[in-house]
Design a protein around this nucleic acid. Structure first.
Length: 753
DNA sequence: TCTGCTCACACTTTTGAACCGC
DNA sequence: AGCGGTTCAAAAGTGTGAGCAG
């Protein structure tokens, strides 16, 4: 069976350039939108902390390996009647490559070229808020791979690199209006280093003792070290006996039983005794230094005592700079001040790792995020063995408390509480890591003295608001995270939450796009006061220029990547998110998503599959907007809803991020995070221009330059772009099987998307 | 020689089909 | 025929260790 059913391909071909047609309903009162105080809790936070205290390692294989621990989340604060998409992405935590030395992880050089990001959309998506809140949201189906040519839709990561998972909740109201709000959550304790084989024995022990599938390796398991050794001995014994039999006289009555040899030692002990002793002396599982003693107590109890997380243990980033979602309606969000306060309150209570985010509110987090070791510092991961260090490996993540961070975060961010009714679109952009070095000056950023650092960015830039300098260059949280020199810190931008809320709420979806057919790539130059333009700019980011030239993406056309949602039914509308690659020129890694209703007839739908055009992207623009003036009225700044390590300059141990680090400013810079879901078969179809866009004359740089961003686009036929895992889920639905993560019964209703 | 990756292996859990009874 | 429960085989997930390549 072909990976992608022909029918799907056909559907993909039939995709109109503009799938989302829905004009925003301006008349719809934004006020109707209930203020949302979305919160997300990491259910298995304690387990994650245990791993984190040692230095979480995740195996990645060619075929794909599940994450363990998995992300088990609880959502609250959602509007029960609204629909949301929950997705997971994993971004580099820094620009370093690591090596396990001396019992700890040390940065040993620069990270490899960033791979195209893939997003794992929760199979239940889209589902109502009630649905998400009624159960635990698990991403255990997500798989990690190191196969850059992976066609299974797994998340591709580099081995021996540090990554930070993120969870995004995107509002999707209906066909016409979606992306009303977006919340991004980052749990610092979920950071991990990818490996092809476990390096730290402590992690191995933790995995074995925590993962049901590894039960066999536990002390009492049949596959335990003891048992394996015993088996091996028996095998050897049998083999030896066999050999003896073969070599010996046929008449010899050698005992074939693999019983231990009963030779007596000088001390009187038998070989069997010695074996027993040897077994007993097998490497002690728990290392005193690690504090993990399975035999003594449960992991929860034994492992790292609830470490004093500076943060509430987790920090959430709303309005991530990377991801901005455009909202169709101009619903206005209430100021995020309340949210910020609530968050602060939560931070006070370290008990639960709950991270709150509100659409609007970006939380600034000045708190330092210790867990993110400086890229080059070998000490990034403290040696677990170090007795002085209670939290051995990854140097314990100092989870910045959101509260404190937000409160301490630059006041400037919070200052702007004004809502921007004019804003019609909030842009949703996937994270783009800031290039390490930028040679190109960035007007907008440069404008502000502090522009070169992320700290300042928050203040000056507001992703969602179509404020004056509506520069849509998305500052990818990703970049923030990836900043090696910068600790993961809830960026101040996040703190802007107060303002942010308004932005989102106010954000109105503008359709259709008025972008020029051949939109000039988003230029770094700021776009003043262009709320509506915001969306366009995003679209412009599309690779009309074949920007991708700078990097070569093996398996998939760089331009587009498909992101597919499990569809309700074959006949139902198809939901496919396409993340066409934006040329590096397009600066803002924008993510456009469309949720075309099956019944919805788009004007352009009849058109053959035209080359991908920015206009086709429905909602997404890079959220990075700079308000040079940072006028109070302007929406709060920004985007880095993600924990912005650099955001809090004062508290953050991370070095400030340079402007050049921003992808949009430095097209050539490596490490441009792109959230993508690939669908090789559809890419070319969806964007015929892609091939051309990549000028053959422009050879891919040896080190993949930056990856262009991929706008999310919804495909009409989910199947076609569904990754295997998704299609599997889909099939289940078709057969009426309830998915572990949620029932698909309501899929029919999801057709709306 | 060292490091990192791949693969086969044995074990486990999960999944789903096949029964069975009501 | 539909539903729910049980059983069982296949599929998939897991860490290990040997082997290989750079």
């Amino acid at each position: 069976m072909p990976l992608y059913p022909p029918a799907c391909d056909m559907a993909a071909k039939a995709l109109p350039p503009r799938m989302l047609a829905p004009p925003p309903a301006p008349s719809e009162p934004a006020a109707k939108t209930p203020k949302e105080d979305v919160k997300m809790e990491l259910e298995n936070a304690s387990l994650w902390k245990q791993f984190s205290s040692v230095g979480t390692e995740m195996i990645i294989t060619k075929k794909g390996r599940r994450m363990f621990p998995g992300l088990r989340l609880k959502l609250s604060g959602l509007n029960p009647s609204l629909r949301y998409i929950v997705l997971l992405d994993i971004i580099p935590a820094d620009n370093s490559r690591y090596r396990f030395q001396g019992g700890g992880w040390q940065a040993v050089g620069g990270a490899e070229a960033r791979l195209p990001d893939r997003v794992f959309i929760h199979p239940d998506s889209p589902a109502t808020g009630a649905h998400w809140q009624s159960r635990t949201i698990s991403f255990h189906y997500a798989k990690l791979t190191n196969n850059t040519l992976d066609t299974q839709g797994h998340i591709i990561l580099h081995s021996l690199h540090r990554y930070q998972p993120r969870v995004h909740v995107i509002e999707a109201r209906d066909v016409l209006r979606w992306g009303g709000g977006q919340h991004s959550f980052v749990f610092p304790e979920t950071q991990f280093i990818t490996v092809t084989a476990y390096q730290n024995n402590k992690i191995t022990e933790l995995k074995i003792n925590s993962n049901p599938f590894a039960k066999g390796f536990r002390e009492n398991g049949m596959n335990s070290k003891k048992q394996r050794d015993a088996r091996q001995k028996r095998k050897m014994s049998v083999l030896t006996e066999t050999l003896d039999i073969v070599n010996c006289d046929p008449c010899d009555t050698t005992e074939l039983l693999p019983q231990p040899i009963t030779t007596t030692t000088t001390t009187g002990t038998t070989a069997a005794d010695l074996q027993a002793l040897a077994l007993a002396s097998l490497p002690p599982l728990p290392d005193p230094s690690c504090g993990f003693r399975p035999e003594e107590a449960t992991y929860e109890d034994t492992l790292v005592p609830e470490q004093p997380l500076d943060l509430g243990q987790a920090f959430m980033a709303s309005q991530m700079s990377d991801i901005t979602i455009s909202m169709a309606n101009g619903m206005q969000n209430t100021p995020g001040s309340e949210v910020a306060n609530s968050m602060i309150e939560r931070s006070d209570t370290m008990g639960e790792p709950a991270y709150t985010s509100t659409f609007p509110a970006a939380q600034a987090n000045s708190a330092s995020f210790p867990s993110a070791p400086l890229p080059q510092s070998a000490s990034s991961f403290s040696d677990p063995s170090d007795a002085s260090n209670p939290q051995p490996s990854i140097s314990p993540i100092d989870y910045p408390s959101i509260l404190s961070s937000s409160s301490s975060s630059s006041p400037t961010l919070s200052s702007s509480s004004s809502t921007t009714p004019s804003l019609q679109q909030t842009s949703f952009t996937f994270p783009t890591p800031p290039p390490s070095n930028s040679s190109s000056p960035q007007p907008l950023l440069s404008s502000s003295p502090s522009a070169n650092t992320y700290h300042t960015i928050p203040e000056t830039i507001s992703p969602h608001t179509p404020t004056d300098a509506s520069f849509s260059a998305p500052i990818s949280a990703h970049s923030l995270l990836t900043q090696t020199s910068q600790p993961l810190v809830m960026g101040e931008p996040i703190t802007s939450g107060e303002n942010a809320p308004s932005d989102q709420s106010s954000a109105a979806f503008v359709y259709p796009n008025i972008l020029p057919a051949n939109p000039a790539p988003l230029t770094a130059h700021p776009l003043p006061n262009q709320n509506q333009l915001l969306a366009p700019s995003l679209q412009c980011s599309l690779p009309t220029h074949g920007a991708p030239a700078s990097f070569a993406f093996p398996s998939v056309p760089t331009h587009m990547q498909n992101l597919s949602f499990p569809s309700v039914s074959p006949g139902s509308a198809h939901h496919t998110l396409h993340l066409p690659n934006l040329s590096h020129q397009s600066q803002a890694p924008s993510l456009a998503a469309a949720f075309p209703h099956s019944s919805f007839s788009h004007p352009s739908s009849s058109l053959p599959h035209p080359p991908f055009q920015p206009s086709s992207c429905l909602a997404v623009s890079s959220s990075f907007q700079q308000s040079s003036t940072s006028a109070p009225s302007l929406p709060p700044a920004y985007p880095h809803s993600l924990p912005n390590p650099s955001a809090s300059s004062s508290t953050s141990s991370y070095p400030p991020v340079e402007l050049g680090a921003m992808p949009q400013f430095n097209p050539a810079a490596p490490y441009r995070p792109e959230m993508v879901l690939h669908h090789p078969s559809l890419l070319s179809q969806l964007d015929p221009s892609l091939p051309t866009s990549l000028p053959s004359s422009t050879p891919p740089p040896a080190l993949y330059p930056a990856f262009p961003s991929y706008p999310l686009r919804l495909c009409q036929d989910p199947h076609s772009s569904l990754s295997i895992p998704f299609r599997h889920l889909y099939r289940q639905h078709q057969h009426g099987h309830a998915h572990p993560q949620g029932s698909y019964l309501d899929m029919s209703t999801r057709a709306v998307f």
